[in-house]
Design a protein around this nucleic acid. Structure first.
Length: 450
RNA sequence: GUGGGCGUAGCUCAGUCGGUAGAGCACCGGAUUGUGGCUCCGGAGGUCGCGGGUUCAAUCCCCGUCGCUCACCCCA
């Protein structure tokens, strides 16, 4: 795009809070994604992909009509048929819907994972975007705390795998919906008695979301908050046993955690276990992963009652931590750089590049302007191991010149038919045979000759 | 959604107490009629985020707006 166009007044920019992921930074994402797939695979999870758009009703019923997400953050609009659709703000609800719709959710145990963009209309900030990406996993079927433990230990393993060692696991239990409702009214009563001690924000939220009052960061509220009844102390016995068993499992597995009695989370579907992984390194957006149990969700959406537990992790935030940690995920440079200059030399150049790829050698054909000087400079900067040079002289003789770029070895000129011999030492170990030149087009690994 | 800070070349930034701008890196070319890395020389690239106001004159001051950012809020 010419500079004059990019400068022009009516040029288009991306939507606020929605960003392009460019080739450089994307290397770290791919690093993250590969680690995630690997870990999820080792826990027997299978991938699921669901549409970005769902009927609005799905999220209202699952996340809860009184939550911030549903009340003020969803991208909701009427499509041409008049149906109310919403860009998904999270994916658990979609997974449940898909499980019910395809008739598998209540049959046995299912372990699913997903990864993709989510949408919430919040004010953008560091670590908070309107289109952001989550990695998530769900276990449908088991009601016991082993499944909760599996989810938590899986995420812990992923952090270790990524080299993130300073994340903190916070745990709480919300109990069953009944015990939670009972607690809520007890808490509201307590807070109303002390209305005078609350700050403005607190007074506003007593009625709307009393559990949130406990989460206030205002130091003047500390005394009121600490004296408040705790949800964890008013659990029903079933939830209490579940929570105790989970704690014992995490201890047995050697996974450290801390109790956060004020952890409530912003989605209404959680029951019993809730957890969050937090970091000190990202400022206000400190939650990097969250999740919990949602035993009532499947029934709420109209399926056969089926328990479930899950997690979801914010990829932007985790990648930001990787950047901070100095994680190196630079893309592998190509092995060969094909530099052809001259009208007769350009004609065979694509065929020469193909011959290299047939041998399993990754190759970039320099299709840019300029002479040998320019093309070799690009070859050097690309990081390629060697340049394959085709000039008019080589083209006329059916030859190519091979010039090492990372050593002081001499340049050699060989017949195109003898490329394989000339490249001994640069070929990948499992090079495809001559009789199956296009053995594996999906294999883009550069030759390993470190 | 609320409040504060900041928007100068592709990137990181300097600068103009109001007189229309510079550096480093990156890019392109030359020194080397077909050979990179080091060095030297040169070039291209900015309506100083956008719109309005004040002024003889605004990139600079004022207002608005958009974007980023920090905190609140919320959460991944």
């Amino acid at each position: 795009m010419p500079a004059s166009d990019r400068r022009s007044r009516n040029r288009l920019a991306s939507v606020r809070g929605m960003h392009d992921l460019l080739p450089g930074p994307i290397a770290l994402w791919q690093h993250f994604e590969a680690a995630a797939r690997d870990v999820l695979d080792s826990y027997g999870f299978e991938e699921i992909r669901t549409p970005l758009l769902e009927r609005t009703e799905l999220f209202v019923r699952s996340i809860g009509g009184a939550t911030d997400i549903v009340e003020k953050e969803m991208y909701t609009f009427a499509d041409r048929d008049g149906d109310s659709l919403t860009l998904r703000p999270e994916q658990t609800a979609s997974c449940v819907r898909a499980g019910i719709e395809n008739g598998f959710i209540h049959l046995g145990v299912h372990r699913l994972w997903y990864m993709g963009p989510m949408f919430r209309h919040e004010r953008p900030q560091r670590g908070r975007f309107r289109q952001f990406h989550q990695l998530g996993g769900e276990i449908f079927g088991p009601a016991g705390p082993e499944a909760d433990a599996e989810i938590i230990l899986l995420t812990a393993r992923l952090w270790r795998r990524l080299g993130l060692f300073d994340l903190r696991l916070e745990l709480n239990s919300l109990g069953t919906p009944d015990s939670r409702r009972a607690y809520r009214s007890r808490l509201m009563e307590y807070l109303l008695d002390r209305r005078a001690d609350l700050d403005e924000d607190g007074r506003r939220r007593v009625e709307t979301n009393p559990l949130r009052v406990l989460d206030s960061k205002n130091p003047e509220m500390r005394a009121v908050i600490e004296a408040a009844p705790r949800l964890i102390d008013s659990l029903d016995s079933e939830s209490r046993d579940h929570f105790d068993a989970l704690r014992a499992m995490l201890d047995e597995a050697g996974e450290p955690w801390t109790l956060n009695p004020r952890l409530v989370r912003g989605l209404d579907y959680y029951t019993k276990t809730v957890f969050e992984w937090t970091t000190e390194r990202l400022g206000a957006q400190n939650a990097v992963c969250g999740g919990g149990r949602y035993d009532g969700l499947v029934a709420e959406i109209g399926g056969t009652p089926t328990p479930g537990v899950g997690f979801s992790a914010g990829i932007e935030r985790l990648v930001a931590l990787l950047v901070e940690s100095g994680t190196d995920a630079a893309r592998e440079p190509p092995a060969a750089w094909v530099a052809a200059v001259g009208t007769d030399a350009v004609r065979p150049a694509p065929a020469v590049a193909e011959a290299l790829r047939d041998l399993g050698v990754s190759a970039v054909l320099d299709a840019g302007e300029g002479g040998f000087r320019a093309k070799l400079r690009r070859a050097d900067r690309s990081g390629a191991e060697f340049a394959v040079i085709v000039g008019d002289a080589e083209a006329a003789a059916g030859e190519v010149s091979i010039k090492p770029l990372r050593s002081d070895g001499p340049q050699s000129t060989v017949a195109r038919a003898r490329l394989r011999e000339a490249l001994t030492g640069w070929l990948p170990q499992a090079a495809p045979g001559e009789d199956s030149p296009q053995a594996d087009e999906t294999c883009s690994m550069p030759p390993d000759h470190a």
